[in-house]
């Protein structure tokens, strides 16, 4: 059993045993987009800041990316998810700029979390789509994942095959795609994260997250931004037992992109 920190030992923000974050990381500006109905925008921004970077709030109706180096489309229910999850958000003016920046020469890193993943599929930056969970219910739980591809812009801190635990919470989280697309994703190692220890929602091939061919655009259904801070994270960790809500496996998703951009 891992050492259990007493209250006195519990750091307020991050694990004090970790080496201090590289000061250059603070120069990396990561945009966090707010659509009407976005919910986890402040959480994603907090995760970027805890990882050592600088979060920049972006408003869906603006035309300007404000010179950010990477973009996160956070979770939530944009436009209530009333038509299809992500279906309306993808028409936002800012989405055009994001699609251009992600597809352009620079290949700007983009991470879509949950609803953001759904927006990326509706915007055709990533293949496939999300339908209602198999159980037809909202599911909130700590979820074990395997990092399948550690080469993407958002996974450099992990090693391929590493297991992590981050919270999963959604209503429409079942990833579906036609067989040809699934075969392609598998053949090209574009399944970025896979559910392990049980498929929570019926996703094809246990897919939790995928990437585009260049590895800069990643969509991930579970929420790494909710496992970044001891005391407010997951109850579990891929590395073993941790104290109540001390699981911070998600933090390295954000550190990864900062390191990639300072390299």
């Amino acid at each position: 059993m891992a050492q259990h920190l007493t209250a006195e030992q519990t750091p307020l923000v991050a694990d004090l045993d970790q080496p201090a974050p590289d000061a250059r990381l603070a120069d990396v500006r990561v945009g966090v987009v707010t659509f009407p109905g976005t919910l986890d925008d402040r959480d994603a921004a907090r995760a970027v800041d805890i990882a050592g970077g600088t979060s920049v709030p972006l408003w869906y109706a603006d035309e300007d990316l404000q010179g950010v180096d990477a973009v996160i489309l956070p979770g939530g229910f944009s436009y209530g998810d009333y038509l299809r999850a992500g279906a309306i958000a993808r028409f936002a003016p800012l989405m055009g700029r994001i699609v251009d920046a992600a597809s352009g020469d620079g290949g700007m890193p983009v991470l879509g979390i949950c609803n953001g993943f759904q927006v990326l599929t509706e915007a055709h930056l990533l293949p496939g789509s999300m339908i209602k969970n198999e159980q037809l219910k909202f599911i909130c739980r700590d979820q074990r994942l395997r990092v399948e591809n550690a080469e993407t812009s958002w996974a450099g801190r992990f090693t391929a095959g590493q297991e992590i635990v981050v919270p999963l919470k959604n209503q429409d989280g079942q990833y579906v795609a036609d067989q040809r697309t699934l075969d392609e994703l598998e053949a090209e190692h574009r399944v970025a994260f896979r559910y392990v220890g049980g498929n929570p929602n019926g996703s094809r091939n246990d897919i939790a997250g995928i990437t585009n061919a260049r590895g800069n655009v990643v969509g991930l259904m579970p929420h790494p931004e909710h496992a970044v801070e001891p005391g407010f994270g997951a109850d579990l960790s891929g590395a073993g037992t941790v104290g109540m809500r001390e699981g911070t496996d998600g933090l390295d998703v954000f550190v990864s992109v900062l390191e990639r951009l300072t390299r």
């Binding site: 919910l39 986890d40 402040r42 959480d43 907090r46 979770g75 219910k137 909202f138 599911i139 909130c140 739980r141 919270p167 919470k169 929420h223 931004e225 909710h226 801070e229 005391g231 407010f232 109540m244 809500r245």
Partner: peptide, 24 residues
């Protein structure tokens, strides 16, 4: 309770099934 989001806002220090919900 697994049909409810207990994580959003990132300030939940404790929730069900503990004795009380605790928020920062």
């Amino acid at each position: 309770t697994s049909q409810y989001d207990r994580y959003v806002q990132g300030n939940t220090a404790m929730a069900m099934p503990d004795d009380a919900g605790v928020l920062r």
